[in-house]
């Protein structure tokens, strides 16, 4: 399974990573060599094996639906790159049309 430049670009779009042309080229090369190693997994017969969901015997963890104090709004917004009053400010999400 050989990676292509188009696949690299598609995956970069899926995870919202702006890559330079040079990074794309390097990614193509390095991901291919990692996948070559990882492809050994296909050797293992897992037809009768269930996938691991958790290493713990996990049960649903429940708690009473009670209000607890939360962080002050200003403390939470203090790290925001941009804010407007009590809101996080972002660039346009929707087109105008």
């Amino acid at each position: 399974m050989q990676l292509t430049r188009e696949t690299v670009q598609h995956v970069a779009m899926l995870c919202r990573l702006a890559l330079t042309a040079e990074e794309e080229q390097q990614m193509l090369h390095q991901l291919s060599s990692i996948l070559e190693h990882v492809n050994r997994l296909a050797e293992v017969d897992t037809s009768a094996v269930s996938p691991t969901a958790s290493v713990l015997d996990l049960y649903n963890v429940e708690r009473p639906d009670a209000a607890e104090p939360s962080l002050p709004v200003d403390a939470v917004l203090a790290n925001a790159p941009d804010r407007s009053g009590n809101l996080f400010r972002v660039r346009a999400i929707l087109d105008e049309e």
Partner: peptide
């Protein structure tokens, strides 16, 4: 958006995301 680095460039939100993460 909520914390951390934000890239200066990009007009639409998706572009800012990609540039920020890149």
């Amino acid at each position: 958006v909520k914390y951390g680095y934000r890239a200066a460039e990009g007009d639409a939100m998706w572009d800012v995301y990609a540039a920020t993460r890149g």
